[in-house]
Design a protein around this nucleic acid. Structure first.
Lengths: 245, 245
DNA sequence: TCCGATATTGACCAATGGTCAATATCGGGG
DNA sequence: CCCCGATATTGACCATTGGTCAATATCGGA
């Protein structure tokens, strides 16, 4: 390996190191309750060195978020290789989403941060695009299954566009995750298991869309077991039972 | 009017003035892109005066958000006085939510800000409670209609608790609003009218919940017209047609 | 008009994101 | 093994800004 190759690799390794620590800071303390000096201390480099990798604190945090979003898209991709009825396949993606949420607790809080304030515009154009690309990947993977559902005749295609259907599924999922974050809401709505709630709401939306077989007409707990066995054998959460009904 | 009474009134008026300008700043520039000095200048007072009313910038912004949330709850309350079938009544609340979203563009962005970072803990306990109270009011108003729907037999009550149903409706609504904020998402999902999309998704969720009469079995465009006429005659948005189907 | 009380102010402080001249390290050639 | 130019790293420094409080202005009653 040449010297310059090694340098590149070392640089990449350091970037990983920084991102890893920044992720911990972000998840544990949000955006405000830590500063670049502290992060520099944690990775044993000077503050200036951080700025050799990232243009601003926001830029760095966006990079953290994008890395997580890429993992999410990767899980979606794995899930979309699941075979079966189209509604089973979209269910696998829903499963992937929950798998992700479990292994990245509070990720949605970080994602919310991105949408707020002047965050976006303080990041590099490159990183903005990278984030959008991973987001688009997630959408596309859902969208593909929706289109298959329509082609197969499992899902009505005369009322809504496939894009609107994908959007509805994503909206109910994200909305459920976000609302579950709030302790007060969990209390007032009597939510003990947020993940279960998310999946239940996904089921309701699929039924509302008329995606067959409807919840009542199929043993989706068996589907879940198969998803777990075939796609996510190392799933970090436990909910082998059907989610609603 | 005594001197002290006048003082109190003047103080309240000034607080309103500050909150009004802060609202403009927040909606137009987010949280970061303005400072307390600028806000003080805008209302023609010194910075220190702002801190006679609010403990911190976050405290001030939370107060702005709570004022908006109160308006939202007020609209929900008006809407819940609508008469008709229970699904028509919950539809009126959905209508109110959209009416609110239209008259408070970008409100959800502000609401997101509250959930993120160390925002919450930098505000006064009093203001935190005020916000939670208005949030709980919104939930309760939806919950009441859900319970009525169950009592009336319009909505199955054996599968889900009334709280879970209310949560599902709120989650799909908030999720749709939030996802609609993102320009990239609007583009990729082909959303031209965000409000129409929100209402459509609410319809889908109600159908999924089995809330009768289902969308296909009732002329909800007539209901919308009646809601508009009886409850929101001055509605600031225009969508007199049915939203799905 | 004067005085004590109250209200308002803006200079000041501390914290922190971001910069860059100074310094340390590296690696190849002699 | 040493030396030197190139490159990498550093942390003192700067500007901004949220927040404080002693100094000042205003008020209202006697």
């Amino acid at each position: 390996m040449s010297v310059s190759e090694r340098k590149v690799q070392e640089r990449a390794a350091r970037e990983e190191l920084i991102l890893g620590h920044a992720r911990g800071f972000l998840l544990r303390r949000g955006f405000q309750d830590w500063n670049m000096e502290q992060l520099a201390g944690a990775v044993n480099y000077a503050k200036g060195t951080l700025y050799l990798h990232f243009e601003s604190k926001e830029d760095l945090c966006l990079a953290v978020a994008t890395r997580a979003l890429r993992e999410r898209a990767d899980l979606f991709e794995r899930a979309s290789r699941f075979t079966g009825k189209t509604r089973e396949r979209v269910r696998a993606i829903g499963f992937a989403c929950c798998e992700f949420a479990c292994s990245h607790p509070d990720y949605f809080k970080v994602e919310l941060m991105l949408k707020s304030a002047s965050f976006w515009e303080r990041a590099t154009e490159t990183r903005r695009q990278a984030h959008q690309m991973e987001g688009a990947r997630c959408f596309r993977l859902v969208h593909e299954v929706v289109k298959e559902g329509m082609r197969a005749g499992d899902l009505p295609h005369d009322r809504m566009t496939s894009e609107s259907v994908a959007f509805a599924l994503i909206a109910v999922t994200v909305g459920s995750h976000i609302m579950s974050l709030e302790p007060a809401m969990k209390l007032v709505a009597g939510i003990d298991d947020p993940i279960r709630t998310v999946r239940q709401n996904q089921d309701l939306m699929c039924d509302g869309l008329g995606w067959r077989p409807l919840l009542a007409d199929w043993d989706y707990s068996a589907t879940d077991a198969r998803i777990r066995r075939e796609i996510f054998p190392t799933a970090t959460w436990c909910d082998p039972v059907a989610t609603a009904g």
